[in-house]
């Protein structure tokens, strides 16, 4: 019998790794990958709670999160392609037109 706190601790570790990655990485694609890591940490917490409460609602929510993640990846990568076409680089620090 695995306690619920184990799953939640793993979810916390995953989320922290994703957040640290978003801070550390300069490449916009690597940042998007770390974003997916954070989304999956939330999914794991949802499914763990859903299983331990014996209700299916958490799993439905994960299903919707996955669809949103797919949409986010599609639009995000389209933006990456548009940025690369204009700037010839993926470094987020180079995309600074709005900077004062």
């Amino acid at each position: 019998m695995v306690p619920l706190s184990w799953y939640l601790a793993l979810s916390a570790v995953l989320f922290t790794l994703g957040a640290v990655g978003v801070f550390l990485k300069r490449n916009i694609i690597s940042m998007l990958l770390c974003l997916e890591l954070m989304l999956n940490a939330a999914n794991l917490a949802f499914i763990a709670f859903s299983s331990f409460f014996g209700q299916v609602e958490g799993q439905l929510f994960v299903f919707l999160v996955m669809t949103v993640a797919a949409a986010e990846a599609g639009v995000g990568l389209a933006i990456v392609i548009a940025v690369f076409r204009n700037r010839e680089t993926l470094d987020v620090d180079e995309s600074n037109l709005l900077k004062l």
């Binding site: 619920l4 706190s5 939640l8 922290t16």
Partner: peptide, 25 residues
């Protein structure tokens, strides 16, 4: 900044998470 911020985030999350105690139905 990342290392201390990550440590604080992980510590806060783990602190909350270890309070949870629920038996599987």
């Amino acid at each position: 900044l990342t290392i201390p911020l990550g440590a604080i985030l992980l510590g806060a999350l783990l602190y909350v998470v270890t309070k949870v105690n629920l038996a599987q139905p």
